[in-house]
């Protein structure tokens, strides 16, 4: 599981320390990956900065997208139990097993 935002690594590091996040928090300051995933929100950030719209992607071990969540409101995000259920329903665990 990784998070991605347009913030600098330094900002993300402080953010992770403050909130106790232990997963990788990636930095996409030029919004390259954000653009590649079609998620650019032009002028959506402070002072008209380009940012990513909130979104979640579940990708299997072969690199295929298995689930996409594009929220309609910044206040509504995917919840952990929701993603775990999707993970179980897709049976990603067994599909990727030996």
């Amino acid at each position: 599981m990784v998070a991605i935002s347009v913030d600098a690594p330094e900002v993300n590091r402080r953010h992770c320390q403050k909130l106790g996040f232990t997963y990788s928090f990636l930095s996409d300051p030029k919004a390259e990956a954000t653009r590649r995933y079609g998620l650019l929100h032009q002028g959506g950030g402070p002072n008209g900065a380009d940012i990513a719209r909130p979104a979640e992607f579940l990708i299997d071990s072969k690199g295929t997208i298995r689930w996409v969540n594009l929220t309609g409101s910044v206040t509504v995000r995917a919840r952990p139990e929701q993603v775990l259920k999707v993970f179980d329903d897709l049976k990603l665990a067994s599909a990727a097993g030996p």
Binding site: V2, I4, P9, N12, R13, H15, C16, S24, F25, L26, S27, D28, E32, A33, R36, Y37, G38, L39, L40, H41, Q42, G44, R53, P54, A55, F57, I59, G63, T64, I65, R66, W67, V68, L70, T71, G72, S73, V74, T75
Partner: peptide
């Protein structure tokens, strides 16, 4: 205001290959 999000029609869909990326993590 909270719902003024782009519809992101170009976002990759289920079944498509996830675009690769190389990005620095919080420790660079």
């Amino acid at each position: 205001v909270a719902r003024q999000l782009p519809d992101s029609a170009a976002a990759p869909r289920v079944g498509q290959k996830a675009p690769d990326f190389t990005l620095p993590d919080q420790n660079d």
